[in-house]
Design a protein around this nucleic acid. Structure first.
Lengths: 341, 341
DNA sequence: GCATTTCTTGAAAGCGTTTTCATTATCTTA
DNA sequence: TAAGATAATGAAAACGCTTTCAAGAAATGC
């Protein structure tokens, strides 16, 4: 019974009951102007008595604001992206804004369609996570909608970006393996051919490469394989590696999901982790500490990133300027790497 | 440039350009009445020329529909619930409806607040996943908003429920272990004290109990421990079990996350899976096949459930009656269980 | 004390649709 | 061919707010 009642009570009803004009009711409700204390109280009382809930469509139509923030993700269901969404949800919690989620599924057409749907919904702001929209598209969106781009560096819109330094993460992971005495280090990456594709994964590859170079070695292409970021591609990658016959003592996978896949493939072949092969992942998602053995990985603070994205958006909508924010990844040492003697 | 333009074009602009009245434009756009072919084409052409996008607030205000469906989840970030959300997203994809997600976090106050926010947003329909709202609350919501309840059986609203037969799932898992020669079977469940709490988890427990009883044995309370459904609680559960000193040869965890935790705890103690202890989970979420060894578990088709929830909701909004839908869980045999000799 | 500024308020004009109602044009049918 | 039914259309009234504008009241300054 508490849930219905707010059916047909309008601002006029409140106005009548409080013996003021609708304008005044509106003013006290949104605090847009000074109102005498006595009237304010009368209004509040009436609102309380009648269980008034403003009609959000009327509000939006009149004010031009939807109190809604569009969130375009690429892979609903993936641990890392979902972590960001969770953070956004959290960050928006106290505000009057609501997120509207759409999934681009890493498919340019789907993504573009989702973007337009969001825009049609007249979101007041837009948070784009990853994706393959061109910089021009992004710029044209940014021209009339506050925009924040997460998990993707976008040179054209530097001040709108929030991302992790993936290059550094890849570098750290690789350097750590090198320091642990490994030399033949595999990297499982994701395709970079398909357009510019997944920028952050590519950065990890570059970090890997740099670490190898800094050690005074060359990157051996036989040690680099491409996966799809899904678990299954991790097992395929290891199979392929084994088939190639090029020996290796460590694997750095571009995300934890592929690391899990790799781990399973090694298990099937009776190759022990870490005694025979060391393994490092990327993301540190919720299952990483529960791998057997617990996975050493590079942590991306997904939830925190989401929260920062949300609060930055709120600032933006508040008229404050945003500044770029880059997170430093952190190597989480667990038990899947051992020193190579 | 394709993305902005739809800024100030209104239905009147279209009407003028097509030399018809706004009423007619509205009619062709929503197909609510017959319109002469010539005019229809003129309107479509104008829409195309001007890149017209209807203002959704005006539409909602005038029509009373928000074209939005509220989705109240309990645990954003949990694999199973996220799977359902993914299914909903998928199921709504082709429709004109959009989901609005809210997270109740398994906290009654948060949940109630989220519910009201959703209602304030005037969602046309509501999908509630799990949660602890009282049946009265649910009924009062159902009284004026199409409602679907997922992953929770609700006797008061039988026709609105979509859920998995958790009792059967728990029964199957346990019976399988029994058939494999196990007798001292642990069950890791979740607290049932905290109010009615998580109904589906409780059903799994009842299934476990029934299978034991059907085997002609008694449930040994020393073999039942409570976790929180998080991974970490799985390790705690095993620690506790070990401390109790009551021998066991198999563990049935009420969800995969706790199974992963249990598996890690066993690893730390050098207890082999499945040679020393067999392990069964519940959910079959995306990491289950990648556990070492791959986890035998009871599959809940999360994504499919979400899709069915969405399409049932669409039917409901279309005036069709919904019928209850209960999914049968499926035991997925992998490698974490072995026959006890 | 009077002119001027500042506050508080209400009236009314939007905001961009949908939909009812009345009108006119077009068909049927006897 | 006239009368009644039917189909297509436009005018105008909602839908429930916000916000501008103007007016009256109160406060300020000289």
């Amino acid at each position: 019974m508490a849930t219905d009642m707010h059916k047909k009570v309008t601002i006029t009803d409140i106005a009548e009951r409080a013996r003021v004009s609708p304008s005044t009711v509106s003013r006290v409700l949104r605090g847009s102007a000074e109102v005498a204390d006595s009237k304010r109280e009368a209004v509040m009382q009436a609102v309380e008595d009648l269980q008034y809930r403003p009609n959000i469509f009327a509000q939006s139509l009149a004010s031009g604001q939807s109190m809604t923030i569009g969130v375009l993700t690429q892979n609903f269901g993936s641990p890392f992206y979902d972590g960001i969404l969770q953070g956004i949800l959290l960050g928006l919690d106290k505000s009057d804004y609501w997120p509207m989620f759409a999934d681009g599924r890493w498919q340019p057409t789907v993504e573009l369609h989702a973007l337009h749907s969001l825009l049609d919904r007249r979101v007041d702001g837009l948070i784009i996570i990853g994706g393959q929209l061109s910089e021009e598209d992004l710029q044209s969106v940014a021209a009339d909608t506050p925009l924040i781009i997460v998990a993707r560096s976008t040179p054209a819109l530097p001040e709108s970006c929030i991302y992790v330094d993936n290059f550094m993460g890849g570098y750290q992971a690789t350097k750590y393996l090198i320091e642990m005495g490994h030399r033949d280090i595999v990297h499982i990456t994701a395709p970079t051919i398909n357009q510019i594709a997944i920028d952050d994964v590519y950065q990890r590859y570059l970090g890997y490469q740099q670490a190898i170079l800094d050690a005074g070695w060359q990157v051996d292409p036989r040690l680099v394989v491409e996966g799809s970021l899904q678990q299954q591609s991790g097992v395929l990658a290891v199979e392929m590696l084994l088939a190639r016959g090029r020996p290796f003592s460590a694997i750095f996978a571009a995300n934890d999901q592929m690391a899990f896949g790799a781990r399973l493939a090694l298990f099937r072949r009776n190759i022990r982790v870490p005694q025979d092969v060391s393994l490092v992942g990327f993301d540190d998602e919720q299952f990483a500490p529960y791998m057997v053995p617990p996975l050493t990985t590079v942590r991306q603070p997904a939830v925190e990133i989401g929260q920062v994205a949300a609060s930055t958006m709120l600032d933006l909508l508040d008229g404050k300027k945003s500044q770029p924010r880059v997170f430093q990844p952190e190597l989480i040492v667990r038990e899947s790497v051992t020193r190579r003697s």
